[in-house]
Design a protein around this nucleic acid. Structure first.
Lengths: 211, 211
DNA sequence: GGCAGAATGTGACCGCTGTCAACATCGTCT
DNA sequence: AGACGATGTTGACAGCGGTCACATTCTGCC
């Protein structure tokens, strides 16, 4: 029978996975080097063979969280089967927002970690070329291409959209709006997203989106 | 000559003030019970005569931060001297946003503390009747009263506005958008606020705000 | 096959933190 | 005067991140 070997074999990976688990229920503040080492069944100093410091470990876990967020947004985006190019582009933008908020609400711990990993923000640095911010920008470019968004309004539109959706998420996850009843929250989110959609369109030239 | 007396005399107050100072340059994570006791020149356990635990102290400091935010927003609001009722109402809404973001950028430590004081959010619970959220709601009601905002769009408008402005603040203070050049940031904020203004108005019935 | 050296894990230690309990001092009320 | 409650002190504890010297195991080279 094989007793616990001296060398773990895959410690780095195991630590990060444990980290994801811990952050999931407990949030970023529950992420302790020693706690993870304990879970993995290894001495706390062993972690330092794989991470320079706690921060590095947090970053690694944040990267996982980032990919999870990406997956959710990507999935929502793929569900848009509208054919009319204008409606399609608008729907895609809305779905990015829905996915983003959905991730924040269903994985509050991971979401909070994403924006707590302080020194270097994980957002928008994914070398795979695909990250939420790029997807947002692509969606906005598409809106310009199909003629819905005035090119003069294009600069800054990304920040506006991101701010609104991110703010909504934060306020609902860790802010004063948490504890909001789900129907109210859904209604508020719909209002927010349709408000953005309306705010982006050339003034009054387009019919409202039905949701 | 009076040597340091055994009893401080005003410890609670002194601790909170030191707390504000510490959070100002150092953020919420620099807020340590022992550090504050050291600053005030008192033993580390003395704080427990005035605060149940660290959390209580943080809440007290957060309350100060809340009042500071309030003051900034209030000030901005008072600067609107427009007479045309519609323009005035729209300008007032914009100024709430400007003040909110201004506070976040000039006092990032205090701002972050406000939304880090986890268990009980300080926002919207001020018994003085005046808090940023109430002011926002009043401004929106005014927009309805003057006929700019469709009453059917009123529900949810508060959350939308707050989300956008708060999200912008968070992304710029502790998120991926920090380090943005100031002119770009200003432009983005203007775009955001005018976008909100536009999104709220009955479709295409009103001319754009000049800023 | 065997051995040197690199990788990896351990245990002891440091200073920091929040928290608590026992004790000291002071102001105040009877 | 004396007692009592409020306030501050001292010393302890456990948990944290971080570093060190040391132990163990794996790997590549002869």
């Amino acid at each position: 029978m094989t007793r616990a070997p001296y060398h773990h074999g895959n410690l780095r990976e195991a630590l990060v996975e444990a980290g994801v688990e811990v952050v999931r229920d407990g949030g970023p503040e529950a992420l302790s080097l020693r706690e993870l080492a304990r879970r993995v069944g290894v001495s706390h100093a062993a972690a330092y063979r794989h991470f320079a410091d706690r921060e590095a470990l947090v970053d690694a876990v944040a990267e996982r969280a980032m990919h999870a967020l990406l997956a959710v947004v990507h999935d929502r985006l793929a569900q848009v089967d509208e054919v009319d190019p204008v409606i399609r582009a608008r729907r895609r933008l809305v779905q990015i927002g829905v996915g983003y908020v959905d991730f924040a609400l269903t994985e509050p711990g991971l979401f909070r970690l994403l924006f707590t990993a302080y020194p270097e923000p994980p957002e928008g640095k994914d070398p795979d070329g695909e990250d939420p911010y790029s997807m947002l920008n692509a969606a906005l470019d598409e809106l310009v291409a199909v003629g819905y968004l005035d090119p003069r309004d294009r600069p800054g539109a990304d920040v506006t959209c991101w701010s609104a959706v991110h703010g909504f998420s934060v306020l609902n996850v860790e802010g004063p709006l948490r504890g909001m009843a789900e129907p109210d929250r859904d209604a508020a989110l719909t209002g927010l997203l349709l408000g953005i959609d309306r705010g982006l369109g050339r003034r009054g030239e387009w019919p409202a989106l039905s949701r």
